[in-house]
């Protein structure tokens, strides 16, 4: 298949998917949220599938960025601003960088690839099915009390509340965190120190 045709097909598929999401969202009582949810959820599922299916570990990491960012979008949709920012900065920003650095520092073969044995694939599938079953059981078993209708979540107020708690009731843990980060800095410098000859 030539590259142009493949590109056109991908673009067409994305257009069709987004249009379908938009049409489905129009049926909902809150179309904007429904549309945003479908976009983020669709991106999340697509990226998650791509992480598992691609064989190249660096590409896998790049798809992981898509999955983590889409999850952050879902957090923002839920009004959990702080969690969304943490997800973006720590996971999509930090952990992903560490994964890529891990590949850079350890990769022995020119093109590092996943080549799982059938037993490993079966084990991974088993773990996946068990996790799915557990999550589904929790989801279906929980009671979801309806939110009181007329109480909007105050977006900035939640972050401000976290800041207030952090600087009043939890001031000591907040300052201790800086000591912990200091220890991390010194420990990393010690581990990666230049060898003196």
């Amino acid at each position: 298949m030539s590259e142009r045709i493949r590109l056109a097909l991908i673009g067409l598929a994305v257009l069709v998917a987004v249009t379908l999401m938009g049409l489905a969202a129009l049926l909902s009582s809150r179309p904007l949220e429904a549309f945003a949810f479908s976009v983020f959820a669709g991106a999340l599922v697509t990226s998650a599938l791509a992480i598992v299916l691609t064989r190249d570990i660096v590409r896998s990491a790049m798809w992981l960025m898509g999955a983590l960012s889409s999850a952050a979008g879902l957090y923002f949709l839920l009004g959990a601003n702080f969690l969304g920012v943490v997800q973006l900065i720590v996971y999509a920003g930090g952990i992903l960088v560490l994964i890529v650095f891990g590949v850079m520092l350890t990769g022995r073969s020119p093109f590092l690839r996943f080549d799982p044995r059938p037993a490993e694939t079966a084990l991974a599938a088993l773990v996946g099915v068990l996790l799915f079953a557990a999550f589904s059981a929790v989801l279906l078993g929980s009671a979801w009390p309806p939110l009181p209708g007329a109480v909007p979540v105050r977006q900035a107020a939640t972050v401000r509340e976290i800041g207030r708690a952090l600087l009043t009731d939890y001031l000591l843990p907040f300052e201790v965190v800086s000591v912990l980060l200091l220890a991390v800095m010194i420990g990393a410098a010690y581990l990666a120190r230049p060898v003196r000859r």
Binding site: I89, V97, G163, L167, M185, A188, A192
Partner: peptide
């Protein structure tokens, strides 16, 4: 391996930014 040190330093200041966000809003 020194590149790793850069990554760890980045992470440390990354986490610091997280704590600055609610502080700044407040």
């Amino acid at each position: 391996v020194r590149f790793y040190l850069v990554a760890v330093l980045f992470l440390v200041f990354d986490v610091e930014i997280i704590f600055l966000y609610p502080w700044a809003v407040l």
